[in-house]
Structures are given as structure tokens and as C-alpha cells.
Nucleic acid binder design. Sequence first.
DNA 1: CATAATGATTATGT
DNA 2: ACATAATCATTATG
Length: 438
Amino acid sequence: MDEQPRLMHSHGVGMAGHPGLAQHMQDGTAGTDGEGRKQDIGDILQQIMTITDQSLDEAQARKHALNCHRMKPALFNVLCEIKEKTVLSIRGAQEEEPPDPQLMRLDNMLLAEGVAGPEKGGGSAAAAAAAAATGGIGADNSAEHSDYRAKLSQIRQIYHTELEKYEQACNEFTTHVMNLLREQSRTRPISPKEIERMVSIIHRKFSSIQMQLKQSTCEAVMILRSRFLDARRKRRNFNKQATEILNEYFYSHLSNPYPSEEAKEELAKKCGITVSQVRLGFLTKLSVSNWFGNKRIRYKKNISKFQEEANMYAARTAVNATSVSAHGSQANSPSTPNSAGSAGSFNMSNSGDLFMSVQSLNGDSYQGGQVGANIQSQVDTLRHVISQTGGYSDSLAASQMYSPQGINTNGGWQDAPTPSSVTSPTEGPGSVHSDTSN
DNA sequence: CATAATGATTATGT
DNA sequence: ACATAATCATTATG
């Protein structure tokens, strides 16, 4: 620390034009008279003000000189005090900045898109693995899918490396600045608060850069996604087998055509497997859900249009399911126009309608379990078979055979089906019920 | 080529 | 999370 003289000597010019300082350096008695002190401070301030005019060497020398001045500690303390006060007063201005909503949006999206979240399967290896894993079922679809995944993971990788880079740069810069400030705090009043503020400023700058990264990543993902979705939107019709399977299920569960998760899985598998070799099918659970959603709504919307189909499938399943109970085939009694309406879904709610009897019959309600469901489906198919046998093969007549909405108190899975006022209910509903209840 | 059929997506509600 | 309703976009059909 005491290299003052050496410096002064080695740089002879250092003190040129400022003899006062040199004088003070060696003069231990300068502070005794007030005048001298004032002069002193004036000198020092002057030198500080003009320090930037000097060459680097000069400035360096001057700095050291000032640093060692005996007034320095006192002055420094005063400055520090003032600084502390001002900083304290400033502090209130910008407390906690609210989290940027847009940044949140971006973050959420990246997370949702699987870019930002935890490594879900990993990089390109995952895509390959995925392709291999799902290769058995629906080769073409999974090809698209794995392509999408591969690109997504590419984006993800870039995003992460960039983010890491930024993070690292930010940390480096922060520590650098902090070191600088710490070092400077020996010669210049710097409060910890100030350092903190500086750090937060740096972080903000870097986070704005990060935001740009996030934004462009989001854009890339959006583009990729839209392309993929567009590709997915190119629908391929299910093959016949698949639709038959689905229709079978639908019409044999007409009263409650809501397949459970497992049922959907099952159906998807069935439809997919029967066809996978032919490389057409590949029904995912989602596809099944879509199918049932569409089916329900379209069925409900125009029941008469689906009568034929309904009868067909009902008959088919009935043959399988109820072949044992042969007596049920009272087919050759077309005389009874099977009033019981019914075809369209009745409501499962236990609001004591006519069908309660059926439900109470099979234990307790549809929720009961397999047995109940089975019986219920049998009831459906039976009803269909009855109505169908009552009617005839095709032609519009069939559609008028029974009024779809029938009893349907307060919307089972449908509120108000088409009024279909055309029907001619005639007979009382008793017959069918008695039959099924048996 | 117009139109129906159909699978997928979106908006909205629960 | 799932259901519905509306809608979009593609495919099948006459």
C-alpha cells in the first residue's frame, strides 16, 4: 500500500502541476489550521473532478495519492453516510416488480408444450425409441408423430443450451460486476444495497434477453405444432371393421354410450389390432373419444337417420348376446308396433320413470357394476331386436316404427331429441317392459 | 363439381 | 377432466 513514493518517483510527471498534493503527502501538520484544511479539501475535490482529464498513468498515480491522504478515511465515511441515506430514500421507488404477464405466458406455454419442463423422454434418442415402441401399431401415424417429437426435442435442446449459456453469462457477468464493485468500494462509497440493485438490474437485462429466446422458441413450437396439427387434420377414414366395432359398442350401450377409459382403450386396441397389419387403423383412445363424441351428437341430432343402422347393429349383437334366450324372438308378431318408443336412450337417473323397474331389477342401478351393465346392454339390444323384428328390413317405415325419445324424462345423455311427432305409438308400453324384466 | 359423410379441433360449460 | 355443440377440413359419392 505504501508504494506512493515509488510511484511518484517512477512517474516523475505524476505530480507535476499539483504540488499541493505532494506536499500534503509528506506534511503531517497540514491539518492544524482551518484555512489550510479548507484549502486542502478544495484541492482534493478539484483533483477528483479533473481526474478524468489525466492520462491513465497520471490518474493512477493520483488515485493512489488520494487514497493515502490522511483526510481520506473521514471524507470517505461522510460520503458513505450520505450515500447510504440517499440509497435508502431511493429504495422505496421500485420495490417488487410484478412478474411480467407475457413472460408468464411464454413460460406456461413452453411448459405445456414440453419444451421447458423436465426431460420427458429425452432428446433424439427418445424420438427414435418412441418410433420403435409404437412402430407396431399404425406405422404411418407414428412416423408423423415421431417426426414431430424429434423436431420438438431439437427445439428443446437448442432452447436449453441457449438458456444455459445465458444463465452462465449472466452469472459470470454478475460476479464480475460484484467483484468490481467490491473492489471499488474501497475507494468509492458503495452500499450493499447498491450492489444488490445493480445485480437485479443485470438480471433484468439478462432476463429480457431470455425472454427473446423464449419468444422465438415459442414461435418455433407454434409453427411446428400447427404444421403437425395440419398434418393430423388430414383425416383418414376408419376402415369398415373399426367402424363396425365402434358402432356395435355404441348401439349396444345406447342407453349410456360413454365408454370408460378402459373400454376406450379396449376399443382402440381392438380396432387398431384388427387392422394394424393393414396399416390403416390406428385408433387412439382420443380417436375413440372423438368418434363417440361425434356419434352421440350426430345420433341425437337426427335419430331417424340412424334408425336403420341402429336396428342393424342391435340385431347383430342381439343374435350374439341373446341367442340363448330363444324365446325372446317373438319376431313374428308384427302386429304389435312395439310402442315402447325407447330406442333413443332413456335416462339413467333414478327419477322413478317406467324404466326404474328394469334397473331395480338388476341389483341397483347402472352403477352397480358389470352385471348391471350387462343386463342393461342386453335390454338395449333386446329392445332393438324387438323393434326391429317388429318392423321390417329397411325402408323409411322402420324409422317410424318407434319414437326415439320415448320416455326420456330429463335427458339421460340427451335433452330433447328431435320431436319426431310422426310416430304412432298406439300400444301401451307394458309389453316390452314385462318382457325385459323377465 | 357440389354435396354428404366423417374425423378432428375449438369453444364453452360442468 | 370430460361432454357437448359448433365448426373446420378432408374424403367419399353421385
